[in-house]
């Protein structure tokens, strides 16, 4: 009956959201701790223990929640909740741990691209409602960074979808289609391989700008504008923004893993695992967590300890001129891939 099916779907959504919320928060804070430990060792110091972010959140809950006199109270208190809720709601569309997503027919990649704007927008609105000139400058810088990095991101998503359309799939933006046809199986020559490698490199460079990490850290610059957007936030609202940052790291790394490396360990015949058993699920999840850790290592930690902070006009220049041209070059290589191979007679 339709009522039974609808209620089963609704129950699945509710339990799934609670499940991915717990997963996102726990593993987000864990990866944040690992990232801090590794970057500390790279800089020659010891660094905090790995569970330090949990202690940070616990301490932030004990602090007072100050609303400044120049702020608008209802926006100031509402916006951190919306940012974190929207970030959690992305996770139900992604295939986490190699399993199929909770709602595989409810959303596609375009929806995820839109929902990724929400946490940054929540930060911007929070900054504008804080009533301090430092916060206004930080919010304007965050808006400019958002405008800058959306351009290469859109080109990457469109080139992947174009390649899948050329292969003849339908529903190219649906995540089940993208996971079902890994793109490294679709290339026919070295030109396509170079094209996809360029796109992967640009997506790895777009990730720190989405997460507001150094070197694209201008909105939250601690040394220049005294904390930037978050200068007036304290206590439990700051804990919400901290958690938003942690969960968004997991979301961005999951998107990179899903788009470029959607392989499952239990499909390898040499491990001898029969599909559907608990051991296969456990192996898939551990492999997925390892992949996410590697992506976070390369895109957040390594770039963070190597490069200093860029100014906002340097950020806009970096994303609009060199990276956009490079991604267009990658798209052209992908388009010429099959054609060149046919011409050279090697297809």
């Amino acid at each position: 009956m339709a009522i039974l099916e609808t209620s089963e779907t609704v129950l699945r959504i509710i339990l799934g959201t609670v499940g991915v919320a717990i997963f996102g928060i726990l593993f987000g804070l864990l990866y944040k701790g690992i990232d801090r430990k590794i970057s500390a060792h790279m800089q020659g110091r010891i660094g905090p223990p790995i569970i330090q972010p949990f202690r940070d959140v616990k301490k932030l809950f004990v602090k007072e929640n100050i609303v400044p006199e120049n702020a608008i109270p209802w926006i100031f208190n509402l916006v951190p909740l919306l940012g974190l809720a929207a970030t959690i709601s992305i996770l139900i569309y992604l295939p986490i741990g190699g399993l199929s997503p909770i709602m595989s027919w409810g959303g596609d990649l375009i929806l995820i691209l839109y929902l990724l704007i929400f946490p940054s927008l929540a930060l911007v609105i929070g900054g504008f409602s804080s009533g301090s000139p430092y916060a206004i400058v930080g919010a304007q810088r965050e808006m400019a960074t958002m405008i800058a990095y959306e351009f290469p991101l859109a080109i990457i998503i469109i080139s992947l979808a174009w390649k899948l359309t050329q292969m003849g799939s339908e529903n190219v933006f649906a995540l089940s289609t993208i996971v079902g046809n890994p793109i490294w199986n679709n290339i026919t020559g070295p030109l396509g391989f170079i094209g996809f490698a360029i796109l992967l490199l640009i997506l790895v460079i777009v990730t720190p700008a989405e997460l507001s990490k150094i070197p694209f850290d201008a909105p939250e610059a601690e040394t220049e504008i005294a904390g930037g957007l978050l200068v007036e936030y304290s206590g439990r609202n700051l804990a919400m923004f901290y958690l938003t940052d942690a969960v968004k790291t997991v979301v961005m790394a999951s998107i990179i893993v899903v788009l470029f490396f959607p392989y499952n360990l239990s499909n390898l015949p040499l491990l001898g695992l029969e599909s559907g058993s608990y051991l296969a699920y456990a192996a898939d999840i551990i492999f997925y967590l390892l992949k996410v850790f590697l992506v976070i290592l390369f895109s957040v930690t390594l770039i963070r300890v190597a490069i200093a902070r860029l100014k906002i006009d340097q950020i806009v220049y970096t994303y609009w001129i060199p990276l956009t041209l490079l991604s267009l070059v990658g798209l052209i290589f992908i388009m010429w891939d099959g054609f060149i191979m046919n011409v050279l007679g090697l297809a």
């Binding site: 027919w105 409810g106 959303g107 596609d108 990649l109 375009i110 339908e170 529903n171 933006f173 649906a174």
Partner: peptide, 8 residues
Amino acid sequence: SGFWNPII
């Protein structure tokens, strides 16, 4: 090429 359900 995609789908979306706003109620979900």
